[in-house]
């Protein structure tokens, strides 16, 4: 510090600039660069995320006409208060409240896909990181498990659509074996369609979860395991009393991201079952998309707001539960 001061004094003396001496001491600060570098994120977030989000909320209070822009050119959407929200909770001709039905569908398909995904990913992660087994060629397996994630969800679904279509190989096999009733259609039947969606999501995401969990396990200090082994702890004990509790933050992280992703489930069921108009696999985003397709931005906006609230509540809830346990 001192040497800098001296340098400044020296330089000012040399150049003979007296004003410099009156100036306050110069302090070096790099904070502004930090702000500048992170500003790009905030600017982009503001323009492309926050503003559209606020507009969505605004739109949800207006009544849009399906023929606006073409037949109805001069009419502006009318302000309608909470009418869009109210109508979302009305029964349709089948006596079903579609928003509950779609949220239910989303959750069911997420759960039947996510539970096996977590369990299998955990088993695989444990096997691959086990210092006892010392598996060879884990790199190959990791790549192979991750592969399905690289294929576009829509392409994957289209492939399944063909495999299970009424002239597809799987349909023909099932029919010849007498496993399915006459006129059965995999994408029209509620149960089979849900299972297909869940299975596709499982195949696509279990590799990703495995890699995340492996990273989590590997980040645990190896010496803890060693000392446990020296103390004579069984593999089972090490697993349940050490690995799993220490892995909890990663598991929770995986769970939250999977749940938020699950709530926004769209591409797989859309490609697979939208043409069949299967009401058992219509997810909340598909309902939103149906409204968007008919330019009903009000109703779609209302769904977005509800979905936002659900996601926020769930995330807060999950965060709270981890933090509480970690404090103990």
């Amino acid at each position: 510090m001192q040497s800098t001061q001296i340098n400044i004094e020296n330089s000012s003396n040399i150049e003979g600039l007296n004003e410099v001496e009156n100036k306050p001491k110069k302090k070096l600060s790099y904070t502004k660069w930090g702000y500048i570098f992170i500003a790009s994120f905030f600017v982009i977030y503001l323009i492309f995320t926050l503003v559209p989000q606020l507009l969505t909320i605004y739109d949800s209070f207006f009544d849009y006409d399906p023929f606006s822009g073409i037949l109805v050119t001069d009419a502006h959407p009318e302000f309608c208060g909470f009418l869009n929200y109210q109508r979302l909770f009305q029964e349709n001709a089948l006596g079903v409240i579609e928003i509950y039905q779609t949220i239910g569908n989303t959750l069911i398909m997420w759960i039947i896909g996510a539970i096996p995904q977590m369990v299998i990913a955990l088993i695989l992660a444990l096997i691959f990181t086990s210092t006892r087994l010392k598996l060879k060629g884990t790199g190959f397996f990791k790549t192979a498990f991750y592969m399905p994630n690289l294929i576009m969800a829509s392409a994957f679904s289209a492939l399944f659509l063909m495999l299970f279509s009424q002239i597809g190989p799987i349909y023909t096999l099932f029919k010849d074996m007498g496993w399915i009733p006459e006129h059965f259609d995999f994408v029209v039947n509620k149960t089979s369609a849900r299972l297909m969606v869940a299975f596709l999501n499982f195949i696509m995401w279990f590799g990703n979860t495995t890699i995340l969990l492996m990273a989590g396990i590997q980040s645990i200090d190896e010496s803890i395991f060693e000392s446990a082994r020296i103390d004579g702890a069984s593999t089972r004990r090490v697993l349940f009393d050490m690995t799993l509790p220490l892995l909890k933050p990663i598991v929770v992280y995986v769970l939250i991201t999977s749940m938020i992703g699950g709530l926004q489930m769209f591409d797989v069921p859309q490609v697979l079952t939208n043409k069949a108009k299967n009401s058992g696999t219509r997810t909340i985003i598909m309902l939103l998309n149906d409204y968007l397709n008919m330019k009903n931005y009000g109703r779609a906006g209302a769904i977005s707001v509800i979905l936002f609230i659900i996601t926020a509540v769930l995330s807060i809830f999950v965060f709270k539960t981890i933090n509480k346990k970690e404090d103990r």
């Binding site: 399906p66 001709a93 089948l94 009401s279």
Partner: peptide
């Protein structure tokens, strides 16, 4: 069949 169809149309043409 008809209620199913009505529900579908109501989603598309709410008016």
């Amino acid at each position: 069949v008809l209620p199913e169809f009505y529900a579908d149309i109501a989603r598309s043409y709410p008016t």
